[in-house]
Measured scan of single mutants.
Amino acid sequence: DRYEFNINGVHFTIDDAEEELIKLIEELLKRGARAEEIEEVIRRWER
């Protein structure tokens, strides 16, 4: 599934997002994580 979200006006799209990654990102968003922090999480996840 495609997952899309915005952080401070920056648009992100993840194709074939796994449910666990989506939950992790949503938790980070609730905590007010910065875009750079979430980008790093996504990079690590994709390795």
Results as ranks from 00 to 15, higher is better:
residue 26 E to Y: 08
residue 31 R to P: 03
residue 7 I to T: 05
residue 45 W to S: 08
residue 40 E to T: 08
residue 24 L to A: 12
residue 38 I to L: 07
residue 46 E to S: 06
residue 20 E to I: 05
residue 28 L to N: 07
residue 34 R to V: 14
residue 32 G to W: 04
residue 2 R to E: 04
residue 47 R to Q: 15
residue 11 H to G: 06
residue 6 N to F: 13
residue 30 K to N: 09
residue 34 R to F: 14
residue 45 W to D: 07
residue 36 E to V: 10
residue 32 G to F: 06
residue 25 I to E: 00
residue 10 V to I: 13
residue 12 F to Q: 01
residue 44 R to T: 09
residue 8 N to Q: 07
residue 25 I to C: 03
residue 29 L to H: 03
residue 36 E to A: 12
residue 25 I to D: 00
residue 13 T to C: 12
residue 41 V to P: 00
residue 8 N to A: 07
residue 28 L to H: 12
residue 24 L to N: 10
residue 46 E to W: 03
residue 14 I to N: 00
residue 18 E to T: 14
residue 15 D to P: 10
residue 11 H to P: 05
residue 3 Y to E: 01
residue 10 V to W: 04
residue 47 R to W: 05
residue 11 H to M: 12
residue 47 R to C: 08
residue 6 N to T: 15
residue 32 G to N: 11
residue 5 F to N: 02
residue 41 V to A: 12
residue 15 D to C: 06
residue 18 E to H: 09
residue 24 L to G: 04
residue 23 K to M: 13
residue 27 E to L: 10
residue 9 G to W: 01
residue 3 Y to C: 02
residue 7 I to G: 01
residue 31 R to N: 13
residue 28 L to C: 04
residue 17 A to D: 04
residue 36 E to M: 10
residue 35 A to D: 03
residue 13 T to V: 15
residue 27 E to H: 13
residue 35 A to Y: 09
residue 29 L to K: 03
residue 34 R to H: 11
residue 43 R to H: 15
residue 34 R to I: 13
residue 45 W to K: 06
residue 25 I to R: 00
residue 39 E to G: 09
residue 12 F to H: 04
residue 3 Y to A: 00
residue 23 K to W: 11
residue 32 G to D: 11
residue 45 W to H: 15
residue 27 E to M: 12
residue 22 I to H: 02
residue 34 R to P: 12
residue 3 Y to D: 02
residue 36 E to H: 09
residue 43 R to A: 14
residue 7 I to Q: 04
residue 30 K to P: 03
residue 1 D to C: 15
residue 15 D to M: 13
residue 3 Y to G: 02
residue 25 I to L: 10
residue 41 V to F: 07
residue 36 E to C: 07
residue 40 E to Q: 10
residue 13 T to G: 05
residue 29 L to Y: 04
residue 14 I to Q: 01
residue 9 G to K: 00
residue 31 R to A: 10
residue 2 R to D: 04
residue 44 R to E: 13
residue 5 F to Y: 04
residue 28 L to Y: 11
residue 46 E to Q: 07
residue 31 R to Q: 10
residue 33 A to N: 04
residue 1 D to V: 13
residue 33 A to V: 11
residue 6 N to E: 15
residue 20 E to G: 14
residue 4 E to S: 03
residue 1 D to R: 15
residue 1 D to W: 02
residue 37 E to C: 05
residue 38 I to P: 00
residue 33 A to C: 06
residue 25 I to W: 00
residue 24 L to H: 10
residue 36 E to G: 08
residue 19 E to D: 10
residue 17 A to E: 04
residue 23 K to E: 11
residue 5 F to T: 03
residue 41 V to T: 09
residue 29 L to G: 03
residue 3 Y to M: 02
residue 4 E to L: 00
residue 38 I to V: 15
residue 31 R to L: 12
residue 36 E to P: 11
residue 46 E to K: 09
residue 17 A to G: 05
residue 29 L to N: 03
residue 26 E to A: 07
residue 38 I to F: 12
residue 28 L to M: 13
residue 31 R to K: 14
residue 35 A to E: 10
residue 13 T to Y: 15
residue 1 D to A: 11
residue 31 R to F: 10
residue 15 D to E: 14
residue 21 L to F: 05
residue 41 V to N: 05
residue 23 K to A: 13
residue 26 E to I: 13
residue 34 R to K: 14
residue 37 E to F: 09
residue 30 K to Y: 12
residue 8 N to E: 14
residue 39 E to M: 14
residue 36 E to S: 09
residue 46 E to G: 13
residue 26 E to M: 12
residue 30 K to S: 11
residue 44 R to K: 13
residue 5 F to K: 01
residue 35 A to T: 10
residue 27 E to P: 05
residue 1 D to I: 15
residue 23 K to S: 11
residue 16 D to W: 15
residue 39 E to N: 07
residue 14 I to M: 04
residue 9 G to R: 00
residue 5 F to E: 01
residue 1 D to N: 15
residue 16 D to S: 15
residue 10 V to Y: 04
residue 15 D to Y: 13
residue 2 R to A: 08
residue 8 N to L: 04
residue 47 R to N: 12
residue 28 L to Q: 09
residue 42 I to F: 05
residue 21 L to M: 06
residue 43 R to M: 10
residue 3 Y to S: 00
residue 34 R to A: 14
residue 13 T to Q: 09
residue 42 I to C: 03
residue 36 E to N: 08
residue 30 K to T: 13
residue 27 E to G: 12
residue 3 Y to K: 02
residue 45 W to A: 09
residue 41 V to E: 10
residue 28 L to S: 09
residue 10 V to H: 15
residue 4 E to D: 08
residue 43 R to Q: 12
residue 42 I to K: 01
residue 29 L to F: 06
residue 16 D to P: 10
residue 8 N to Y: 02
residue 15 D to H: 08
residue 43 R to P: 03
residue 38 I to M: 07
residue 18 E to F: 04
residue 34 R to E: 15
residue 25 I to N: 00
residue 3 Y to F: 12
residue 26 E to N: 07
residue 4 E to G: 02
residue 37 E to G: 03
residue 46 E to F: 08
residue 45 W to P: 06
residue 23 K to R: 14
residue 5 F to P: 01
residue 29 L to C: 03
residue 11 H to T: 14
residue 44 R to Y: 14
residue 27 E to A: 12
residue 7 I to K: 01
residue 29 L to D: 03
residue 31 R to C: 10
residue 24 L to S: 09
residue 23 K to P: 02
residue 40 E to C: 07
residue 15 D to V: 14
residue 44 R to N: 13
residue 7 I to L: 07
residue 8 N to F: 03
residue 46 E to D: 13
residue 1 D to F: 05
residue 46 E to V: 07
residue 45 W to N: 13
residue 16 D to K: 12
residue 3 Y to W: 11
residue 8 N to H: 06
residue 26 E to V: 09
residue 10 V to A: 05
residue 35 A to V: 15
residue 30 K to L: 12
residue 27 E to Q: 11
residue 41 V to K: 05
residue 39 E to T: 13
residue 44 R to I: 10
residue 24 L to V: 14
residue 6 N to M: 14
residue 11 H to W: 15
residue 16 D to T: 14
residue 23 K to I: 13
residue 11 H to I: 15
residue 13 T to D: 05
residue 20 E to D: 11
residue 33 A to L: 04
residue 30 K to H: 12
residue 42 I to S: 01
residue 34 R to G: 15
residue 28 L to K: 08
residue 32 G to C: 04
residue 15 D to I: 15
residue 28 L to F: 08
residue 7 I to N: 03
residue 7 I to E: 02
residue 39 E to P: 02
residue 41 V to H: 07
residue 47 R to Y: 06
residue 8 N to K: 03
residue 39 E to S: 13
residue 27 E to K: 12
residue 8 N to G: 14
residue 20 E to R: 05
residue 13 T to H: 09
residue 25 I to A: 00
residue 36 E to W: 09
residue 22 I to G: 02
residue 3 Y to Q: 01
residue 14 I to H: 01
residue 34 R to M: 15
residue 25 I to H: 00
residue 27 E to W: 08
residue 40 E to D: 12
residue 18 E to W: 03
residue 38 I to G: 00
residue 12 F to Y: 13
residue 12 F to S: 01
residue 20 E to Q: 07
residue 17 A to Y: 04
residue 2 R to V: 11
residue 43 R to W: 04
residue 44 R to C: 14
residue 18 E to Y: 04
residue 47 R to G: 14
residue 14 I to V: 09
residue 35 A to R: 06
residue 37 E to K: 05
residue 44 R to L: 13
residue 20 E to P: 10
residue 32 G to H: 08
residue 9 G to N: 04
residue 12 F to T: 02
residue 18 E to A: 14
residue 40 E to V: 08
residue 1 D to L: 14
residue 39 E to R: 09
residue 32 G to Q: 09
